[in-house]
Design a protein around this nucleic acid. Structure first.
Lengths: 209, 209
DNA sequence: GCGAAACGCAACAGCCCTGTATCGTTGGAG
DNA sequence: CTCCAACGATACAGGGCTGTTGCGTTTCGC
């Protein structure tokens, strides 16, 4: 589930100077910062990256053959899986799953990269597929697992489309990530409010559905 | 509320050949198509646009001084305001507002441009502001108007945060626009399902909120 | 210490984009 | 019919990015 870095293997492993791990992260950090500052994945140039990282252009070429591969390692940086919630009730479990997402949304650099990736998915198919497999799919599975358990426990209606419920829960956070309006987002409080409203509904109680 | 085109005024208005309106739209269409094909607002070059439009580079420069201004006219293209819903009930009115949005989401070119614009908001502040004022704000106003009326009519709870309800309703569509997963979206059917679920809630009826 | 690879610096050709200018041609207004 | 601007084509200098090569220096393994 955790991505292996795709950094170029340091050639024949006999003698010679060691690669500086700080250089690797400096480059990746540079990409994160520049994308967060408004750069495009396509538009980011290797010269700009190297300059921002305080590294020679050589050191970038030595590690990654393509921008594509570099971005794969950047993407791996912003994916820290969390343990599946196994909590007391459906409400708490849902909030926990949303928290994982909300924390990423609040992270300006992470959400900037994902936003850019969505916009340029056509240009980076491999990257986009990886994003889907490693980040989106696991979250969906965790979500539907919690929802299914909620139905079994009788805490959720059994006549609702669980996929739609999941979409409803997740979308407010995704939409904020997409629009970049992540300032006034409190991961703890807002996820709680979303879960509460989705469970309870906005319609008047006496008003028949 | 409707944007005036920012096309360069055709100089002194005395004699001379007329501008071909077809050229204007050909250029704008070219931008729409190329962005929908995965191009970036920053990355789109004037040569590429002119080539795609089947127009000389000259004709583009003659009309717009900056890509920024060109994009303003592109943006104006994808904004067709709809009459405010004044319908029978809250459920129908909400569905109507969402429909306006859903139709735009389903439009590949429109959603592509808006997705790109969100990703590159930092690079095009004027454009982004305009997008917000002309497209986002009106929709929000329409939405909250409907919601407020719903509370007055007793069809909505009076103890819910209407802004959150609005966000919950709109976000599934925005999230799809952002991720580009717009294929299996049925504007009529899906907006209806969203409204129903938000009104009714997913929690079990006997389960106290 | 010797070899080898990582590193920074610099140069190179090739390509694309920009902005401006100059042509000859075309078509509408007066 | 006569202007005059729109139009296509072309050229130009200037700048940026790419990918590769060569150089001298640094650091690690053996």
């Amino acid at each position: 589930m955790i991505q292996e870095p795709v950094v170029q293997e340091p050639a024949a492993r006999q003698g010679g100077r060691q690669r500086d791990p700080a250089t690797d992260s400096a480059i990746i950090e540079a990409v994160l910062d520049m994308v967060a500052a408004g750069a495009t994945l396509t538009g980011l140039s290797l010269v700009a990256i190297a300059k921002q990282a305080g590294v020679s252009r050589n050191s970038v070429y030595r590690r990654w053959k393509t921008k594509d591969e570099l971005y794969l390692d950047v993407l791996a940086t912003i994916n820290e899986p969390r343990p599946a919630p196994d909590g007391a009730g459906t409400r708490e479990d849902l909030a926990a799953v949303l928290r994982t997402l909300a924390d990423r949304v609040v992270d300006v650099r992470a959400s900037s990269v994902l936003r850019a990736l969505n916009a340029e998915a056509a240009t980076f198919p491999r990257l986009h597929r990886r994003y889907f497999e490693e980040i989106v799919a696991p979250r969906r599975e965790a979500m539907t697992a919690v929802l299914r358990r909620g139905v079994e426990r009788g805490e959720l209606r059994d006549d609702v489309d669980l996929d739609l419920v999941a979409e409803l829960l997740v979308s407010p956070l995704l939409a904020r990530m997409a629009s970049g309006s992540t300032d006034h987002l409190d991961p703890v409080r807002d996820t709680r409010r979303i879960v509460d409203l989705v469970l309870r509904g906005a319609g008047a109680p006496d008003d028949d559905a």
